[in-house]
Amino acid sequence: MSAITNVARASLSKDLRLEWRSKDAINSMLFFALLVVVIFSFSFDPTAEESRRIAGGLVWVAFLFAAVVALNQTWARELRNQVLDAYRVSPAPANALFLAKAFGNFIFVIVLETFMTPLFIVFYNLRALGPAYQLLIVSALGTWALVVNGTFFAAMSLRTRSREIMLPLLLFPISIPALLATVEATTAILTGDFSAKFWIVLLAAYNVVFTTACLLLFDTVLNAE
């Protein structure tokens, strides 16, 4: 167990340091999400009441698209200089690498959300009518749901042609229940019309199921040859 945490921590801190110095993923994600927010905002131009109903969907669609930008870059770095091959022959557990990458992406997307949420509030004139603290739980669970499968599928699409296109094609269909749950929970909290409890439970179940599946199958995918 300690081998997993040590390797994961080392790999994660390496990724974070690289990202801190280059800021490749975070800058492209932020600008991309900003563009989506602006385009949505002037194509719909909603009133405060309308925007409360549609904002949940808009926010998460923007985050989803932006997250794909970061997810696509996850493994590209490891392909240069055959880092991934070196990892394969090393005795380090495969799941440690997966967890490090997933946590790294989780942090990137959470940072993105922290920056973008104030912008959404400004552009869409938002104010939550339900319990706002639940938004924190929803965004943590929803982000993990996107990121855990996204990291996994990004590793899979390394072995395909035109891999940048492949990732969303694989990720979006599988993520439909998670997206629906996240959007509905956000809408429930923003409008205060109904309780978000069921959707939070569903998101948690989704996360448990797919995190387990990813951990069980990642070794197979990494070593596929």
Binding site: T160, R161, L170, I176, P177, L202, A205, V221, A224
Partner: peptide, 25 residues
């Protein structure tokens, strides 16, 4: 789209993910 050698494995993994997804949907 996948390169021939690993297609069966990748496809099998996606099929399992899809099956896990159906009850959640």
């Amino acid at each position: 789209f996948s390169s021939s050698g690993q297609t069966p494995l990748m496809a099998a993994v996606i099929a399992i993910f899809g099956a896990l997804d159906v009850p959640l949907v």
